[in-house]
Each structure stands twice: as structure tokens, then as C-alpha cells.
Computed example of a mutant assay.
Amino acid sequence: MRKFASWARRGLILLSPIPLFAAMTAHAADPSDTLHASVRAAMERDLNLTSNQLSQYLRIERLANVQEKQLAKA
């Protein structure tokens, strides 16, 4: 049991920087720049979001996409 706990701890230490890297990557490439203005306006209107809220929503969606790809590789 101790051997498993030791390996599990090592695995967690090795994997712990991955979410940080994913968040930094998602923040560096702002997805709101690639979204067409009419689509942004429609999302703001239909989802009842402010511009800042929509930008945060898109960042979270991009982060989820990056994490999904990383988990699929793992």
C-alpha cells in the first residue's frame, strides 16, 4: 500500500503543472479575437452577457478544450 501511495504522489507531482500550463496557454491566445463581431453580438444578446462576461466564457471554453485534448492523450 505504501508503494502505491508513493507512486501516486509522484504522479500527482508530475501532473500538477499541466492545468497551470493549460490556463496560461488559454489566456495567451484570446479566443475573442478570432470570433466574428456578429457572432459576439448574437452571443451577448442571446445569452444576456456583457462583453467582459463573454470574453471570460470564451476563455473557459478554450481552456476546457485544451484540457480535453490533454486528457485524451493521457
Rank of each mutant, 00 (worst) to 15 (best):
M1F: 14
M1R: 04
R2F: 00
R2A: 01
A5V: 01
S6Q: 08
S6I: 08
W7T: 09
W7I: 05
A8K: 12
R10L: 00
R10Q: 02
G11H: 05
I13L: 09
I13K: 11
L14M: 05
L14P: 01
L15R: 09
L15P: 00
L15V: 03
L15A: 12
S16N: 05
S16G: 07
S16C: 04
P17L: 08
P17D: 07
I18F: 10
P19R: 09
L20S: 12
L20P: 01
F21I: 09
F21Y: 02
A22E: 01
A22G: 04
A23L: 14
M24T: 04
T25W: 13
A26P: 02
A26T: 04
H27V: 07
A28V: 07
A28S: 13
A29M: 12
D30L: 08
D30H: 09
S32K: 08
S32Q: 10
S32T: 13
D33L: 15
T34F: 12
T34K: 13
T34Q: 12
T34D: 15
T34W: 13
L35D: 02
L35E: 08
L35I: 15
H36C: 07
A37F: 13
A37K: 11
A37N: 06
S38D: 12
V39Y: 10
A41G: 09
M43F: 04
E44V: 06
E44N: 01
E44Y: 00
R45F: 07
R45G: 06
D46Q: 15
L47V: 03
N48I: 05
N48L: 10
L49T: 03
L49S: 06
L49R: 13
T50G: 15
S51C: 02
S51W: 07
S51M: 08
S51P: 07
S51A: 15
N52A: 14
N52E: 12
Q53N: 04
L54Q: 07
S55R: 09
Q56W: 04
Q56E: 11
L58E: 11
R59A: 01
R59N: 07
R59C: 01
R59I: 04
R59V: 05
R59D: 10
I60S: 10
I60Q: 14
I60W: 03
E61K: 14
R62G: 01
R62H: 08
L63M: 05
L63S: 02
A64W: 03
A64F: 09
N65S: 15
V66A: 00
V66W: 01
V66C: 02
Q67K: 05
Q67P: 00
Q67F: 03
Q67R: 06
Q67M: 15
E68Q: 14
E68D: 14
K69E: 03
K69M: 03
Q70R: 06
L71H: 08
L71G: 01
L71M: 05
A72Q: 14
A72H: 15
K73Y: 11
A74Y: 13
A74V: 06
